[in-house]
Amino acid sequence: MDRYVCQICGYIYDPAVGDPENSIEPGTKFEDLPDSWECPVCGAGKDDFEKE
């Protein structure tokens, strides 16, 4: 599963880790994140992420 990097702040979304703080279970692919999901560091939207 691909990791995605926030182009705004550098945060890396790692599907193996998920984003538990925002109820995203480990194992969730970036593509499967809800459209409303935001970068947990800077609040950027999914559009601001690029594949690592």
């Binding site: 705004i8 702040c9 560091v41 800077c42 609040g43 950027a44």
Partner: peptide
Amino acid sequence: LETRMLHWP
């Protein structure tokens, strides 16, 4: 008006 990352979140 939010200005995230200009220059902090």
